[in-house]
């Protein structure tokens, strides 16, 4: 693949209520298959996707925790969460299903600027 674009995927939704969280993960895996570097940013309610021990079979859906765990296998290692988003929901990093990188909200504009394509979902 000759042309690489830096992708920033911004997820903004809680899991299972809509298909948005699942779609973001599908886009991320697809970017990886096309060998495009991907950064994931979880804003607002999207941090709720990373709460552990989902049991979505109760609502007949596939487990997002399993897909999240596979991100590292697709070489998607940069998963960012603003500290404020975590605080808003009373969560700490050790309660999350996968390792993430905390960032300051002030860093967000620079993060956007360092990517070629920004997809919100």
């Amino acid at each position: 693949m000759s042309i690489n674009k830096r992708f920033l995927l911004i997820s903004r939704s809680a899991p299972y209520g809509t298909s948005a969280a699942r779609e973001m993960l599908d886009i991320a895996l697809t970017c990886s298959v096309f060998e495009q570097p991907v950064t994931l940013l979880l804003l607002g309610d999207a941090v709720l996707q990373l709460i552990r021990d989902h049991r979505p079979d109760e609502v007949s859906q596939k487990n997002l925790n399993a897909l999240q765990a596979s991100l590292a296998m697709y070489d998607i290692d940069r998963i960012l969460i603003p500290e404020t988003a975590l605080q808003k929901h009373g969560l700490s990093t050790d309660q999350l299903s996968i390792p993430i990188e905390l960032i300051n909200a002030e860093q967000l504009p620079a993060l956007i600027a360092e990517h070629d394509i920004v997809i919100t979902i």
Binding site: S32, K62, A66, L67, A69, S70, M73, Y74, D75
Partner: peptide
């Protein structure tokens, strides 16, 4: 079993 999907080539 772990990731609940069949992997693409890279993974």
């Amino acid at each position: 079993q772990v990731y609940e999907h069949s992997p693409a080539m890279r993974p």
